[in-house]
């Protein structure tokens, strides 16, 4: 699987994503600086990493979505490439228009950082197929703007089309209908606030993230 991690100024989970991809795929992901106008050829997967791109200026993810690499990311998604958008990456993906909805300030106003239990809402996606009969995972969360919002019609559509990938067990941020992660219409883009790349059997975070990357490997 050929993958790339987009690095924005203020990204801080880009190396976690790099390490996770290296561990699962055995290949080195390309680290692509946001000012590059183009992506490597024949890419299977783009990871939009967590962090605080552009210091969250204006709105979380808004400036990153307007950066020079933005059009190349949209083009990759448009031709059916996989995109894994984690935390700040999820915010960037909604700002890019790859996923519906928006991420608002946590209802508690607190920056919340802890292991978070999640229900796997669909195991038929390219990102979750490897979990098979497993119903729950624990991924770390660490965010201030993770309160997923979309209008009722959009939420109904997401649920009706099986595009909710993960739900919080114990909603940490006020997200509509406990939604922690959503899929694009073609199922190839996943945006989620929790961090699977920090749950890779390291010294902390458990190992529940491994199967997400293995699922992608099998699909791509």
């Amino acid at each position: 699987m050929k993958s790339a991690v987009i690095v924005f100024p203020g990204s801080n989970c880009d190396r976690d994503a790099q390490t996770a991809l290296r561990q699962v795929t055995g290949a080195e992901p390309a680290m692509v600086w946001h000012k590059e106008g183009a992506l490597p050829n024949k890419l299977d997967l783009i990871v939009l990493p967590g962090g605080f791109s552009y210091g969250d200026y204006l709105r979380s993810g808004a400036m990153a979505a307007a950066s020079p690499i933005g059009d190349a990311i949209r083009a990759h998604a448009a031709r059916g490439g996989y995109v894994l958008a984690i935390c700040n990456g999820f915010q960037v993906a909604t700002e890019l228009g790859l996923l519906p909805g928006a991420l608002l300030r946590n209802a508690s106003l607190n920056f919340t950082c802890r292991p978070q239990p999640l229900a796997i809402a669909t195991n038929s996606s390219a990102f979750t197929a490897g979990y098979k009969e497993q119903r729950e995972v624990s991924f770390p969360i660490a965010h201030h703007d993770g309160n997923y919002f979309a209008d009722a019609a959009t939420l109904d559509r997401l649920e009706g089309e099986g595009r909710v990938a993960f739900r919080y067990i114990g909603n940490p941020n006020g997200s509509a209908r406990d939604i922690a992660g959503v899929l694009s219409e073609n199922g190839r883009v996943l945006g989620l606030m929790p961090h699977p790349e920090r749950a890779m059997a390291g010294q902390e975070g458990g190992n529940d993230g491994v199967k997400l990357f293995e699922s992608l490997m099998a699909a791509a």
Binding site: R59, E95, A150
Partner: peptide
């Protein structure tokens, strides 16, 4: 429409 506001919210 393009940058300053996110009209979803």
């Amino acid at each position: 429409e393009k940058l300053l506001a996110n009209t979803v919210v």
